[in-house]
Design a protein around this nucleic acid. Structure first.
Lengths: 199, 199
DNA sequence: TTCGATGCAAACCATTTGCAAATCC
DNA sequence: GGATTTGCAAATGGTTTGCATCGAA
């Protein structure tokens, strides 16, 4: 990588880390959209725009998703709703999830385990600060992180290439502390070592 | 985002850009694995390891994929191979693609158009410098880029959270210069404006 | 009243699997 | 010669669609 020295990169990274440490922690849940908050407003707006109707199913879905933490899959949604006494068909869930994506209330986060995709996940993003994911390749644990420095660089790259950036998806895959430590214990100490990796 | 000022972020980005501009361009194609190069070696190694056999189908697949530029889909592969007189079934392609992924010769790049996934793409990576993708949300054009500063920050984030990083997937989605300019022409000048975006 | 939404079942599509025949070592 | 691969066909699983019915505006 010409033009870069290990030193300059390290300095860059360190300064970014230092700065990022001063960030506020992520809001643990969405505080702005529960009963009749912003999410509802946003959704109603989209419905009005398309001449859509606010059905009971949509109300239930929206309320439920807003209360949900972390990512979820369409099928899980149906099960959970049924548990709470709401009967909504999988079809309807699918149809409305894409609406909610359009409205910017949820987003699709494709889980990439490197071999198979298995099915889409969604997560509630409205009112959450923007974030990306760290995923453990052993246990599947997902950790959210937010890192403005990376966002800024992404924007810069896009501009370099004449692109106007709309969104990005970033997923870091590795071994989480728990799984790594388990390794270390099993092999009798030493640093955790990741298998495979980019050539 | 506490701790960051617009100015400090801009400065960071600018310095990163300046440095990145000095990088060598991406190798346009893989120069190390054509007839009997490294790719073959890598693949043979994996086969030996698993007690696998080097069939004609595998030879054809490997040779063909090595010559391929850009990303491809399993089905396309079958078609293209047939055009060249090689009869390989889709099943076999699928079975061997995952082997090639294991060997680190290709990788899966899931295309995320925000709504549906449509099917996996793969691309030849052995011998290519590591890169990520810019994708145009209008015309689907894909541009490769490589940006060590982002990689360094990703590594830093992972370490912060105690993860040992194995790989990452980064995809920037936006409007490419061509599509953006088309907009500008249609609306009579002015900067291209992206629809939607992260809240 | 009327057009959009729902739910069921069937269609779809990418991917995987069972199994007999072909093939490599 | 015997285990591996292949290819076909059938199964799978997530997602979408056709259509009759239901319900919000």
């Amino acid at each position: 990588m010409g033009g870069w020295t290990k030193k300059s990169l390290t300095r860059l990274a360190r300064s970014a880390i230092g700065n990022a440490m001063q960030q506020e922690p992520l809001k643990p849940a969405c505080g702005t959209c529960s009963p009749d908050g912003e999410c509802s407003g946003k959704f109603h707006e989209l419905l009005r725009l398309k001449g859509g109707r606010l059905t009971n199913e949509r109300k239930a879905l929206l309320r439920f998703i807003c209360d949900l933490e972390g990512h979820f899959r369409p099928e899980t949604l149906v099960k959970l709703l049924k548990d709470q006494g709401f009967q909504v068909s999988l079809t309807t869930v699918y149809r409305n999830l894409s609406l909610l994506v359009q409205a910017g209330i949820i987003r699709r986060t494709d889980v990439d385990d490197g071999v198979r995709s298995g099915g889409a996940r969604y997560e509630h993003i409205w009112g959450h600060t923007h974030h990306d994911h760290l995923v453990c390749s052993r246990c599947g644990k997902r950790v959210e992180f937010s890192y403005p420095a990376i966002d800024v660089l992404q924007d810069a790259v896009a501009r370099e290439h004449g692109f106007v950036l709309e969104r990005h998806s970033l997923e870091l895959v590795g071994v989480c502390p728990d799984c790594g430590n388990a390794d270390a214990r099993r092999t009798g100490g030493g640093a955790a070592r990741a298998p495979g990796g980019t050539p």
